[in-house]
């Protein structure tokens, strides 16, 4: 998959990576500080998730695709925070995952575009033509093949039901996994205790429960059918973690 990406796109991604890394001493502590002191968010279960993620990243250079549930436009910040603290990401910058935000949500002002660029993002345009979506997948595949982590939302958008929506599973995640040899899937389920349904942002002072599971998707099928099966396994795993979350909260 990475081979089909044009040289100009590869150069652009590597330039973005270099600039982001160069300024990481500024922006990583700043965003962690905003989450801790301004938003007053707190994570429950992050120690276990961080240990598991660090083990996965340390034991091999094979690509890691982080697949998470999606409820708010800002939960990718909390998910990233749950994967590692400031020190871990400054020491291992490639552990800090790339994100794939919806372009129209962040393209409205220059400072949002700068932020998206700086925060290791590959914007996606929902509803764009199939070739454009394929190009985005190629970019993500290129980054994964270079040993970068990538965070994606297999549901393809914020869940309008407030629960993991298995019917909306985007097959692109299965296509990514099946096209990258040795790709490992790190499933993360994160939910704020004040988060009843989907929305714009988690509320200030919210406490997030976070769970993780290393998944090795398997399929006997090839091509499209295999990719769909893998995507369903990943979203199914997130749904199972959600059930566990609500069982724990009862």
């Amino acid at each position: 998959m990475a081979n089909v990406l044009e040289a100009s796109d590869r150069r652009a991604l590597l330039t973005q990576l270099g600039i982001s890394r160069g300024l990481s001493l500024l922006w990583i502590p700043m965003f962690t500080g905003i989450m801790v002191f301004v938003m007053r968010w707190r994570l429950v279960g992050a120690d276990r998730v961080r240990r598991e993620y660090a083990r996965l990243r340390s034991e091999s250079d094979a690509p890691v695709l982080v697949c998470a549930n999606h409820l708010t436009m800002l939960d990718s910040f909390a998910i990233t925070w749950a994967l590692g603290g400031t020190g871990a990401f400054l020491r291992h910058f490639n552990w800090l995952p790339w994100n794939t935000p919806e372009e129209t949500n962040f393209a409205s002002t220059w400072w949002k575009r700068v932020l998206v660029y700086l925060l290791k993002c590959v914007p996606v345009k929902r509803g764009s033509d199939r070739a454009e979506i394929a190009k985005t997948l190629d970019k993500v595949g290129f980054l994964l093949a270079r040993g970068e982590s990538v965070l994606i939302f297999p549901e393809g958008g914020r869940s309008r039901t407030g629960r993991v929506d298995q019917e909306s599973a985007a097959y692109g995640v299965g296509r990514l996994v099946s096209s990258i040899p040795g790709c490992r899937v790190f499933c993360v389920y994160l939910r704020g205790r004040n988060q009843e349904s989907w929305g714009y942002s988690p509320s200030p002072g919210d406490v997030f429960d976070v769970y993780s599971h290393v998944l090795e998707p398997k399929t006997d099928h090839e091509g499209l059918r295999g990719s769909v099966e893998i995507a369903k396994q990943i979203v199914g795993q997130l749904a199972e973690m959600e059930s566990r979350h609500f069982d724990d909260r009862q």
Binding site: I133, A134, A170, Y171, L224, V228
Partner: peptide
């Protein structure tokens, strides 16, 4: 758009053909 893949899988069954991931990119 999420159901388009189900449609293409139905084509596989109906016409007894195999469709690659990349083929879906040209289906508009």
């Amino acid at each position: 758009s999420a159901r388009l893949v189900d449609v293409v899988l139905a084509f596989e069954d109906e016409f007894d053909i195999e469709i690659a991931d990349e083929d879906v990119d040209v289906v508009n």
